[in-house]
């Protein structure tokens, strides 16, 4: 049942088929189909852009602000989609769990993979946008996949933990819906971090705490490597070298703890789901 099993051929085949099924079923019966994968974040971006960049004049000091904003919304969208699918995956696949025996993590990994595929499509859109907007491609772009992997592992940790609890206590879905709304404002997606840092001593402290959040760290780092050096990152905001590692530690500790918890709970999924 452990992670080495992920290399086993039988599990790989099963994972592949489940990912294919999830992806096919995703936009089943809609006219625009897969186009929605791109259209959704683009529409959200359009709303945020009109409200915050045009009406409220946010981000005047940031070069390529539209691309900057789009990158933030796409990554945020990935995080919400990934955790949403992951948390509900075990309950949603209850029919399989009750009838055959297989490693349960495959379900969570396959559900979250759909979000990963959508992100890959959206990254292509971002790159096209960036090039149109006059962002010069650099070698640092190659670091982006690693940052996305970090965000994916963080989402996977949350999915394992909350997905396992959700089997017994379905309140988790509702709690997470509210929590994710709060998290949205705790991550500098629409507002520039500089606005927080420059608003008094509380703002300066809040801004630093915000940057310890792995989501904020990844989003800012992707913006830094992809778009502009003017982006404030965890590295530039926090001076203590140990504190700079906090976002990574959160991801690693959460993933390990959540996997162990999930593994323990998964033995009884068939009875409880």
């Amino acid at each position: 049942m452990g992670f080495p099993n992920i290399l086993c051929q039988k599990n790989r085949i099963l994972l592949g088929e489940l990912v294919k099924t999830d992806f096919k079923l995703r936009y089943q019966g809609s006219i625009l189909g897969y186009t929605w994968a791109v259209l959704r974040p683009l529409l959200m971006f359009a709303i945020l852009y009109i409200v915050f960049a045009k009406m409220l004049n946010f981000g005047n000091d940031i070069p390529h602000y539209p691309v900057y904003l789009l990158t933030g919304t796409v990554l945020w969208n990935f995080f919400t989609e990934c955790t949403g699918l992951g948390i509900n995956s075990i309950v949603g696949r209850g029919d399989l769990i009750r009838k055959i025996s297989f490693p349960k993590y495959i379900i969570v990994v396959s559900a979250t993979s759909t979000a990963l595929i959508n992100l890959a499509i959206n990254l292509c859109v971002i790159i096209i946008f960036a090039l149109i907007n006059g962002v010069a491609p650099t070698w640092t772009w190659l670091l982006v996949p690693f940052l996305i992997l970090e965000l994916y592992l963080f989402s996977l940790g949350i999915s394992f933990l909350l997905g396992a609890i959700n089997v017994k206590y379905r309140d988790i879905t509702s709690i997470w819906d509210v929590l994710i709304q709060a998290l949205f404002y705790a991550v500098p997606i629409i507002y520039p971090l500089s606005m927080v840092l420059s608003s008094g001593s509380f703002g300066a402290l809040a801004g630093r705490i915000i940057m310890l959040n792995p989501i904020a760290q990844v989003i800012q780092d992707v913006r830094y490597t992809l778009i502009t050096d003017a982006t404030m990152t965890t590295w530039s905001v926090i001076n203590n070298p140990l504190l700079r590692l906090v976002p990574f530690l959160i991801v690693i500790v959460l993933l390990i703890a959540a996997s162990l918890f999930f593994r323990k709970k998964s033995k009884h999924f068939a009875e409880e789901v």
């Binding site: 088929e17 489940l18 099924t21 399989l96 055959i100």
Partner: peptide
């Protein structure tokens, strides 16, 4: 027919069920 999905075609269901 474990895992049979009504929204998929017969062909797709054969491969899905086979994988299971």
């Amino acid at each position: 027919g474990v895992g049979f999905n009504p929204e998929l075609t017969g062909r797709e269901n054969v491969y899905l069920n086979g994988a299971l």
